[in-house]
Amino acid sequence: MIEFVRNVRLWFVPGEVREEGRTPDYRFSLANERTFLAWLRTALALIGGGFAVDQFLPDLRGSWRVGLALALLASGVLCSLRAVNHWVRCERAMRRGEDLPASRFPALLGLVVAVVAVAMVVVVLVDWEG
């Protein structure tokens, strides 16, 4: 968490990452940028999912619908903030010649998506029965 707060400075200061170490091959930086954009698309997909739950499941009970939509929107926010943070960490690690940072986030997100999907199946089936 403290590490995260320290990294937030790097998000806004244009030159600070560049001051450290050596500039890596530009292709590595571009690959890192594409990974960042892929995570941003994941975040946008989660946010779009939040909108979709709100609009395309009108029969779902109000609290379920709002709760699920808000959970998806919140996970989108988390995903995009984490995308910048991970991008900065990778950029810095490449400049310093260190190993790229390992992360539990993809596994965590995968689990969350799986749980939400199973919950949706249950909700739809229960709704169908009743």
Partner: peptide
């Protein structure tokens, strides 16, 4: 010819746009 790395404030701005859209989404849902 050899593009420079993306400046961090641009990456942050792109991510913050996404966050702001999600916040607007929360208003729309509620």
């Amino acid at each position: 010819h050899r593009p420079r790395a993306l400046p961090p404030p641009h990456a942050t701005a792109a991510a913050l746009c996404t966050v702001a859209v999600a916040v607007c989404g929360a208003f729309l849902v509620l």
